[in-house]
């Protein structure tokens, strides 16, 4: 089972349809069961049942999740594969020693892969859909795998199977989610 965590400001918000449901479709299409859960309702039993976790994005104006870092402290302990999308990457950056700075990208942006990784191997550069007003600083305990001309686009924890992507892979880059799931399930990526 793949756990999809909704980071929107409240459970059952309109943001769920836009940022969680499209990811759930891709995950189900790849043959996995999905359980969506709001970040304030996440429990240890749910985490223990998951094979991997995806932290989904939020509407541009929705940054309420940043005021509740305690809700994400489990990331420090977990050995599960985790993919953070946009807001999810912002959470991962702040939990692992980074800070956020204002940086707005809305629309299609060129992403250049600069690091070696089983998920992004051979990707070179690709066009991706962005919708964010914040970006991660480079001072963090994470490896930078890709950049745009404005900010860091992909990070990976050096010792955990935790990834963050600033772009929205559910729009025109389903392959990122597919490869993350394949690599997670097959153990190609491991701590």
């Amino acid at each position: 089972m793949i756990l999809l965590i909704d980071l929107c400001y409240r459970n059952g918000s309109l943001g769920f349809d836009e940022f969680v449901r499209p990811v759930a479709r891709i995950v189900r299409h790849s043959g996995n069961d999905v359980i969506p859960v709001h970040f304030r309702s996440l429990t240890d039993p749910l985490l223990s049942r998951a094979e991997a976790v995806i932290l989904c994005g939020t509407p541009l104006a929705d940054t309420a999740f940043l005021a509740e870092p305690g809700a994400f402290s489990w990331l420090k302990e977990t050995s599960l594969p985790v993919l953070g999308i946009c807001a999810g990457m912002e959470v991962i950056c702040t939990i692992f020693g980074g800070t956020l700075r204002p940086c707005t990208e809305i629309g299609m942006t060129e992403v250049s892969v600069i690091g070696n990784d089983p998920i992004f191997q051979g990707s070179g550069s690709f066009s991706a859909y962005e919708i964010h007003t914040l970006a991660c600083s480079s001072k963090q305990d994470l490896e930078v795998l890709a950049v745009s001309n404005q900010c860091i686009q992909i990070v990976r924890h050096p010792e955990k199977t935790i990834y963050g992507v600033m772009f929205h892979p559910e729009v025109r880059n389903n392959w990122v989610i597919d490869r993350f799931l394949t690599c997670s399930v097959e153990g190609i990526i491991s701590p």
Binding site: L14, D17, E18, R21, P22, P59, A61, V171
Partner: peptide, 8 residues
């Protein structure tokens, strides 16, 4: 705020 509830 901007919402696109039918997105994808």
């Amino acid at each position: 705020w901007c919402f696109n509830p039918l997105w994808y």
